[in-house]
Every structure is written in structure tokens, then in C-alpha cells.
Amino acid sequence: MEWTIQELAARAGITSRTLRHYDRVGLLAPSRVGENGYRFYDATAVARLQRILLMRGLGMGLPAIAEVLAEEVEAGDGLRAHIAALEAERDRIERQIRSVRHTLEALQAGAEPRMDVMLAGFNDHYKDEVVSRWGERAFQVSNDWWHGKTLDQQRAWKRAAEDLVAAWVAAVQAGAAPTSERAQSLAARHVQWLSQIPGTPTAEGERECSIEMVKGLGDMYVDDPRFAGMYDDAAGARFVRDALQAYARTRM
């Protein structure tokens, strides 16, 4: 099947003059020229035009596009690269949409979007720790999961997390031992809470990695002063660490 220059221009949303210019600068020649001088374009030419328009959409100039096309050995490689670039752009736009939607919902609910971690994002403040311990994918998947929640869902999750912390603090204040049934029940609840977060080893069902994650979190609760305050004081953080690590050793 072939298209005339007018048909191709109309379908591509450009002008015939643009197609002629692409021909003059060596970017896109017609597949054939009829005896009457009409230009015709086949599927291969249309695929090349698609690539040109995609690169133009990314802000590339014609000389740079010409270089890319000249260096390609196989057209499929270029198309695969463009698919990857478009998917990355799609993901970026989807994240922006979720962020703006979240802000709108917060404002409609009478909340200040920047007032706490809940509205700033799930683990943005701990990105470096998450990436260094469990990889970029763990951060991205869990972060996307969090930003995909509605404001009410985020509030419900935050309440559940606060309830878990309060239960830990109550166990410490009651004088429970880290290996007691009360503490181990809380540790099981803590691990179950972690398993709800996509991208984490506990959510993926990776036993060995999950054990290391739980132990690592226990260490982080003690080593990072931000968590000591969460569990009332340094002694509380050590209690949570010891309970989680005992659970990881014996029950996971």
C-alpha cells in the first residue's frame, strides 16, 4: 500500500511542504516518484517518518535526527529505543497527574498538601536508604503505589501505621520482653504491614531477602535518630529492633 504526499501529510498532521523539505535535506525520500511527478510513500517510509516525528517531539533538531538515523544499523533497534523513551515519558506524566490530583484532593478536603509526610509522599524522605538497601526498583514501585492512593486511602494507611507504632510503645511501657508473645505478635503484625507495600522483599515473597530487610529495618530504627523519636525514645527503638530481629531469626 502506498500513500500520496497529500495523503501522508494529512494523516501525519504536517504539510506537503514539510515532506518535501525532509526530502531535500536527506531525511525522508519518497518510496517512488510517478511519471507524473507525484510522490508516493510505502510502509517503510511511513515508519521512518514516524521516527522523525517522534524525535521532533522530543525537541531534537533535524541535523541531530539525521545523525541518529544515519548511525542506525537496524530500524527495529531505533523503534525499541523510542518505545522505551515514550514509556518513560508516559510514566513521568502519570506521576505528575497523580501528584496534581493528590494536591487537588487535599485542597478540596481542606488539608494543607505540604503539612506532613503523608501528603509529601510515602518514602520520599527515605529514598537514599531504600535505594541503598533494596534498590531503585523497590523505591520506585512503592513510591508509585503510594502516590496512586487517594487522599482517604493515604490517611487510612497513616492511621494504621500510627496504630502499629502506638502498640509498640505500649508494649515497651508495659515492660514486655522482645521475645515475649506480645512483642512477637507485634513483630508479625509489622512484617505483615511491610508485605502490603509493593516492591519490598516481603511483598515479593523473597524469604531470604525479607529476613535481611526486617533485620536491616531493626538496625535502622536504632541507628537513625528520626526513628528513636517515633518509638518514644532510644530504648523503644532498641526494643522494636530486638523483637523484629528475634522474629526474623525464628519465625520467618
Rank of each mutant, 00 (worst) to 15 (best):
L244I: 00
A183Q: 02
R24G: 05
G121D: 00
A47E: 11
D219E: 13
P178D: 09
T200K: 05
W157V: 11
D144G: 07
A43F: 06
E129A: 15
T250S: 12
L79D: 11
G236H: 00
L79C: 14
V25H: 08
W145R: 04
A187I: 01
R101S: 11
R155C: 06
E94G: 09
E112P: 05
Q140S: 14
G135D: 07
R137S: 14
S132I: 10
R20V: 15
D124H: 07
K127G: 05
E208Q: 12
A106C: 07
T18I: 08
A166K: 02
M220R: 13
Q173T: 11
H190T: 14
Y38P: 11
G135T: 06
W157Y: 08
Q154L: 13
R11G: 10
G34D: 05
R251A: 09
V214H: 03
V46C: 09
D116L: 07
G199K: 03
R95G: 09
D152N: 14
V68D: 02
A156W: 03
A45F: 01
Q196C: 12
A171L: 05
R11I: 12
E67M: 08
Q108H: 13
L62C: 04
S210M: 05
V68C: 10
A237V: 12
G205L: 04
L49W: 00
Q96V: 09
E2L: 14
I52M: 00
G229P: 06
K127R: 09
V165L: 03
A70K: 09
L69T: 06
A111K: 12
W134G: 12
A183R: 00
P225D: 09
D233P: 01
Y247T: 03
E2R: 12
A43V: 14
R48P: 01
F227M: 05
R98K: 10
R226M: 15
Q196M: 11
T44L: 15
R155S: 10
